Simulated assay, not measured.
Amino acid sequence: MEAVSVYHPKLIDSAICRVETAGDPILEFFIKEARAMQRASALILNTFHELEAPMVSKLTSFFSKIYTIGPLHALSSVRINGDRSPLASTTGILWKEDKGCITWLDSLPSESVIFVSFGSIVRFTHDQMLEFWHGLVNSGKPFLWVIRPDSIIEEDSNSGELLMELQERTKGKGLIVSWAPQEQVLAHGAVGGFLTHGGWNSIMESTHAGVPMICWPGISDQQVNSRFVSEVWRVGLDMKDKCERSVVEKMVRDLMEAKRDEIMKVMGVVAKQAGESVKEGGSSYRNLETLIQDIWSITT
Rank of each mutant, 00 (worst) to 15 (best):
V6D: 09
M213L: 06
D150G: 09
I114V: 14
L195R: 10
Y285P: 01
T207K: 00
P25L: 06
R286S: 00
K96E: 13
E231Q: 12
V211W: 07
R227Q: 05
H8T: 09
S297T: 03
E28H: 07
S107T: 14
E257D: 08
E168M: 07
I298R: 12
L130Y: 11
R84S: 15
D127C: 07
F115H: 11
V146S: 12
I152C: 10
A180I: 06
D261E: 13
W216V: 07
P86Y: 07
F194C: 00
H134C: 06
I147M: 15
L255I: 05
L166Y: 02
E28P: 05
G82P: 14
A15V: 10
T21H: 15
E205V: 04
P217D: 00
S57D: 10
A22T: 13
L144V: 13
M239L: 13
K250E: 15
A258L: 06
S117M: 04
V278W: 00
H197M: 09
P9T: 05
R227L: 01
Q184R: 07
R35A: 14
N201I: 05
A190C: 02
E183I: 11
A209M: 04
A42E: 07
P86S: 08
S120R: 08
F132S: 08
L291Q: 06
V116H: 06
G193P: 03
R18T: 03
H134Q: 13
V122C: 09
Q128H: 15
S64T: 15
L27V: 08
H49M: 02
T90P: 02
T68Q: 01
I176V: 14
P9V: 09
R253D: 02
N158Q: 06
T68W: 00
L87I: 14
D127Q: 15
S41G: 14
P212S: 07
Y285N: 01
E257L: 07
